[in-house]
Design a protein around this nucleic acid. Structure first.
Length: 880
RNA sequence: GGAAGGUUAGCUCAGUGGGAGAGCACUCGCUUGACGUGCGAGGGGUCGCAGGUUCAAGCCCUGUACCUUCCACCA
């Protein structure tokens, strides 16, 4: 097998094959099993209109890492997937497609349109799922759900009816956000504010029966058609004498009152505000307080309606121009001022939202919000990172009622029926045969559908069978962690939490792991309009899913945005190649080896060192992953594999492997293999494909790494003495390399290495390590001795703790250079001595710092002092 | 107006009160029997600024400057 492995790792030829294997084996599937502990993640359902983008890629990578980790740890891990019907997004898309075919939505009718949309869903709804599979996502696809499937729809009905009966859902005429393009109401969360350059139009409103005027200022002159008052502050002396009088609305001629309301800011503008209750949320409130009529001046498409008189039929912006022109001609326009302001737009289409008074369905939020607020305050629900609980709480504590009805066809139709005779409203699962009040048979269902988020709010439990008391629900719910972006806390997280408490009595998840946005190289949001998006599928094709996944978690802390760039992918790809080649090295060497006789007692200090390091790594990585510090976990893995394992251990082991006489060869192979397996297992959640491919190349292992067990810390593999010994060797090797580089000695030139130490202990360590120096330290031979006997006077030297290393280069030596080098060493040591003695001379340090810390500094001081003395001795020798 | 986050090497970013880190970039050297998608050796940081707490601060506290984002919306 090993000899068949390519020199470079080629993900394209293995990923699909392995994914198919996992699917066929059913590894992703979870069933209720009371003998095991469940671990559940519910996947944020991507829209059926969706195409995989970097946001999905990040979100799914994080979830897959956690679920694979827990699965290997022995949990019965369920990752519940599915898709969202995405009412507006889908309806817009299908309508556009019909239009291309020359079909008008209205002519097609509701039934026909829904049939077409289901067809569309069938055709494209699966696309995003197959794209998620390309990422290596180990979700339980057998359980795939859809927010409009039978079960989820039942849950929606159930919730609507329960909340209605409890009085938490009501129908009312209130001011809502209206999108004139999508022609539907939208919730507050769907309004996005944009800075726009605009104007302030100052207009004179004549006071009836006088020749006086009141000057008002507005950014939206067209709304004056719906003005039903002008308001001033009650304490505003300027207008005191006019309160109670009527004003004449210019162009319209309607008489409107001047009212007093403390909502008005005396200092702003002229201190007089036109009040348009039907088209401004604040004016709506003022209107309610003063019993003002609400005059709706607009049609659903944003044109002026019959209430607008001569302006009827004009688009709202056309009307604005016409009105300003007419005001000017009529002498009412005082002046025009430039004014930048924030304009609410629809987050889907960016059309400027029109506030309108409409009959809509709402969810009353104050009671529902209460347990959701308490959950975070009492720690039942935890955000990672923690500071997002501020965002969450702030929103919940200031929440307004949720407008849930949408004037769309694609979605869950509101289960309310109106009696055509008496107007009675009946909320029920089925259409009532007769009106319960008047008994007539003219019952008509509400035309509207529900906000998409109404159904996704139930996702964590509706997918597990709620409202039925299913085994799945009992066992897998509440879920363990929700993974999502901070941009979706308001839309989704909050609504799931209050829904969970209301309908199941529990928080739907314990932890919420929040991640940031994936931005482009320059830190800009990836967007279609900028054309700066990087397609994850293209990255996968070119570099592999593992490289993409690694890139998305490397160097990133929870909640932070990250910049994505080609360079980062290359670094990940290179790491994959490194892992591949380290494995190839092991496999090539192990082919004909017999490891049966190896036991702990056969292992050399180097073997024990790397096993001990790996053992510590297991503990650290596991801990980091439990804390959702995935970036830290993977950084430790990266460093361990690349530096400790490849650059040090593999290099140390080569002479043993290439010498058939070496009695420790089998021990080396055993160690190589077991450390590699441990590392691959720890790496598997991050890089599932490459680790599986390598793991399966070792025929004596389980059939898949993804069902193998997560490594556990084992105190029998804690070899701290050997760790210290190898650190000494590493220091020696580094110093030798340093010397050679400083003296410009080419690697091809081997030399004798003398190690002089008066400590038997240290000499023993070097005797054991002698074999490494040929490759690591370019040594032709290594002589370990208690004194300097036989070492040429002009040898180059370096001092390490408890030993001095000499290398005679004969003709190569340059005494000046050597003195300079040693002086550099002396300087460094002097610095260390100064630092340590500084601390130790501080009485407060001695008395207040922990004893171990003080002891540590004392040891350092002693060591560095001894080393400095050695360097000085060498220097004086050379100078003489 | 309110809130959160950021400010650490040329760039991108980690950092868990006790001698400043990684990747990329840069300089020098290397056909070392896994890997040049590699190996070895380097250069490069008053950790935004000012105070404070502490024996000890990049890390904790206060203030401040600048950047980013979210929420609110004075018409």
């Amino acid at each position: 097998m090993a000899t068949e492995m390519n020199k470079t790792y080629n993900p394209a030829e293995i990923e699909d094959r392995l994914y198919r294997k996992w699917l066929e084996k059913g590894y992703f599937h979870a069933e209720v099993d009371r003998s095991r502990k469940p671990f559940t993640i519910v996947m944020p359902p991507p829209n059926i209109t969706g195409q995989l983008h970097m946001g999905h890629a990040l979100d799914n990578t994080l979830q897959d890492i956690l679920i694979r980790f827990k699965r290997m740890q022995g949990y019965n891990a369920l990752w519940q997937p599915g898709t969202d019907h995405a009412s507006i997004a889908t309806e817009v898309k299908v309508t556009a497609k019909l239009k291309e075919e020359g079909i008008d939505k209205e002519e097609l009718g509701r039934e026909g349109f829904l049939a077409r949309t289901w067809e569309w869903k069938k055709e494209y709804g699966g696309r995003i799922v197959s794209q998620l599979m390309k990422m290596g996502s180990s979700a339980d696809w057998d359980r795939e759900r859809f927010t409009m499937d039978e079960g989820c729809s039942k849950a929606v009905e159930e919730v609507f009816i329960r909340l209605y009966e409890k009085g938490y859902i009501y129908r009312g005429s209130r001011i809502i956000n209206w999108c004139p393009v999508c022609q539907t109401s939208i919730s507050d969360a769907e309004v996005e504010y944009e800075d726009q350059a605009g104007h302030f139009w100052h207009i004179n409103y004549p006071v009836a029966g006088t020749d006086r005027y009141i000057e008002i200022a507005t950014t939206r002159p067209e709304t004056m058609l719906g003005d039903t008052a002008v308001a001033v502050h009650p304490e505003d002396e300027r207008y005191k004498d006019l309160v109670g009088r009527k004003l004449i609305l210019p162009l319209v001629g309607r008489e409107i009152p001047l009212v007093e309301d403390s909502y008005v800011d005396k200092e702003f503008g002229t201190g007089a505000v036109k009040i348009t209750p039907a088209h401004d949320p604040n004016d709506f409130e003022v209107g309610k307080r003063h019993n003002l009529p609400e005059i709706n001046i607009m049609n659903d498409d944003g044109t002026i309606n019959e209430n607008g008189g001569k302006y009827a039929g004009m688009d709202r912006y056309e009307a604005r121009k016409a009105i300003v022109r007419d005001l000017e001609e009529g002498g009412y326009l005082v002046r025009i001022e430039k004014h930048d302001h924030n304009v609410g737009t629809h987050d889907r289409c960016h059309t400027t939202v029109e506030p309108m008074v409409k009959q809509q369905w709402f969810v009353k939020m104050d009671e529902l919000a209460r347990p959701a607020i308490a959950a975070v305050k009492n720690g039942e629900l935890r955000f990672v990172p923690e500071h997002f609980d501020r965002t969450y709480l702030h929103w919940l504590e200031n929440i307004r009622d949720w407008c849930i009805s949408r004037q769309l066809w694609w979605g869950h139709r509101i289960p309310a029926y109106y009696c055509q005779e008496c107007g009675e409203i009946t909320v029920a699962k089925e259409k009532p045969a007769a009106c319960p009040k008047c008994g007539c048979h003219q019952m008509v269902q509400d035309e509207d559908t529900l906000d998409t988020w109404f159904s996704s709010a139930l996702w964590p439990f509706s997918t597990l069978g709620w409202p039925e008391k299913t085994e799945d629900l009992e066992y897998f719910y509440p879920t363990d962690v929700l993974v999502t972006g901070y941009d979706i806390i308001f839309f989704w997280v909050i609504r799931m939490v209050f829904s969970g408490y209301e309908h199941t009595g529990k928080s739907p998840f314990r932890d919420v792991l929040i991640h940031g946005l994936v931005r482009d190289e320059l830190g800009r949001k990836m967007s279609k309009s900028l054309g700066n998006g990087i397609d994850p599928l293209e990255v996968i094709e070119q570099y592999g899913a593992d490289a993409l996944r690694l890139t998305l978690v490397t160097g990133n802390a929870p909640g932070n945005d990250m910049r994505f760039s080609e360079k980062k992918i290359l670094a990940s790809r290179n790491f994959a190649n490194k892992v591949w080649n380290a494995s190839r090295f092991m496999l090539m060497n192990i082919e004909k080896a017999d490891l049966s006789g190896v036991s702990l007692s056969n292992l050399t200090p180097a073997d024990r060192w790397i096993l001990s390091k790996a053992n510590t790594l297991v503990k650290d990585v596991t801990e980091n992953m439990e804390n959702y510090d995935l970036g830290i976990a993977v950084a430790k893995l990266y460093d361990f594999i690349w530096e400790e394992f490849c650059d040090w251990y593999i290099e140390m082991v080569k002479p043993r492997l290439y010498n058939d006489e070496d009695a420790t060869k089998a021990a080396a192979l055993f160690t190589l293999k077991s450390v590699l397996i441990t590392a691959l297992k720890l790496l598997h959640p991050f890089m599932p494909f490459i680790t599986e491919e390598i793991f399966c190349s070792m025929q004596d292992q389980e059939e898949s790494i993804m069902i193998s067990s997560w490594p556990e810390y084992d105190e029998n593999y804690d070899f701290s003495r050997e760790e210290k010994e190898v650190e000494i060797i590493k220091t020696a090797v580094r110093n030798i390399r340093n010397m050679r580089a400083d003296m410009n000695v080419p690697p091809s030139r081997k030399a004798t290495v003398y190690v002089v130490s008066d400590k038997e202990e240290i000499r023993r360590v070097f005797e054991h390590a002698r074999v490494f120096f040929a490759t690591l330290g370019y040594a032709s031979e290594v002589l370990v001795q208690p004194d300097k006997a036989g070492i040429p006077e002009d040898a180059v030297s370096t001092v390490i703790p408890d030993a001095v290393i000499y290398i005679p280069f004969a003709d190569l030596v340059d005494v000046e250079k050597e003195i300079a080098r040693l002086e550099k060493e002396a300087k460094r040591l002097a610095g260390e001595i100064k630092r340590a003695s500084g601390m130790l001379n501080n009485e407060k340090f001695i008395s207040k710092a922990p004893a171990a810390k003080v002891e540590e500094e004392k040891e350092k001081l002693a060591r560095y002092t001894a080393m400095a003395a050695q360097v000085e001795e060498r220097l004086s020798q050379l100078r003489s």
